[in-house]
Design a protein around this nucleic acid. Structure first.
Lengths: 184, 184
DNA sequence: GTCTATAAGAAGATAGAC
DNA sequence: GTCTATCTTCTTATAGAC
């Protein structure tokens, strides 16, 4: 892995651990094993690096979700597979975590990857729900239900971190799946 | 309002706007119209002030939720009133917002108000759901469903901030209410 | 491409005068 | 109780040598 690549992955890790405001260029350099000059040679500054890291994280999240949600199975089973997939719950969502960061939200450039990721994910889930409805598996409004499912995930991360335990995350997922199955 | 009080409310505002890592003692002093010496006379430092501000915000949130959830109405109606209550969605939750802050989560003292608030809220919602079940209004597992409802709220804030619009929050709330009513 | 200065300003206090 | 001075470390770079 070359230096630019190491800088990006280090930034991805630090953004997830400490947010944008809490991540300094120095910390990125140290984790990447790169010097000041090296970092400023490859990127114009902290926002530029963050942009690269967020775009990368967004693509990774999307690829993972797409794989599970495009499987050949019922709508509810695909959604369950996505919700129950292995996650480091206490680390938080690499994308959703940044929605609380004031500097991310204030910058259209840095907010864009978050906006696009969630818009895509809600759209994908709505498609899955629409398919399920057409097949007679369930009968729910696809758009609002999709927003609910993504919100349960993101809110589950919040509850887990507040409790320092994955339990409330798992409960929230179990609860929404019961609701989805109960209306089938 | 005396100086100590102004320092607390200013800290509440700044924690909500910028998080703990993003809030400096200097910013707090300026918003409160207090000097350095004044702040360090009333509080031992930034963590001490944050602790006071978080405890206050937690009490406020709890009082508001308790009022709406203890009303004389059906379980679903009380939950709907709580979910649909007027909020500054784009500002985020004064408590849940801090769950992403690494320094808050790393400190047992600062994490406690978050943990206690969500534990209480999930318990309160579980009580409401248990009551509804005993009255035959619905039939859902109270504990997991309560976690789901709180998660929808917290996740709704995340989606709204990412989209810079309250719409996904409203959709998530509408979706979960439809699920709750659909199983009634 | 990478390294080592250098630097203005902020962060988070402490000390002592008033 | 509040104010000003002082201090150390961190932040976010820029400049120029190698």
């Amino acid at each position: 892995m070359d230096t630019a690549e190491r800088l990006i992955t280090s930034t991805q890790e630090l953004l997830r651990e400490r947010g944008y405001v809490g991540t300094s260029p120095k910390a990125i350099q140290q984790r990447a094993g790169a010097g000041q000059g090296s970092m400023y040679h490859h990127f114009t500054g902290k926002p530029d690096l963050a942009r690269a890291a967020l775009t990368r994280s967004a693509a990774e999240l999307r690829a993972l979700a797409d794989q599970l949600l495009s499987a050949d199975d019922t709508a509810v089973n695909r959604i369950e597979a996505y919700l129950r997939r292995e996650r480091d719950v206490l680390a938080g969502c690499p994308i959703g975590r940044l929605a609380q960061d004031p500097d991310i939200i204030a910058s259209p450039t840095l907010r864009a990857p978050l906006d696009e990721t969630f818009a895509w994910l809600r759209g994908k889930l709505a498609d899955v729900l629409t398919e399920g409805r057409e097949r007679g598996e369930l009968d729910l409004d696809p758009v609002t239900t999709a927003a609910t499912i993504v919100a349960v995930l993101q809110g589950g991360y919040v509850l887990a971190r507040a409790a320092d335990s994955a339990e409330p995350f798992d409960q929230a997922v179990t609860g929404v799946l019961a609701l989805l199955k109960g209306t089938a």
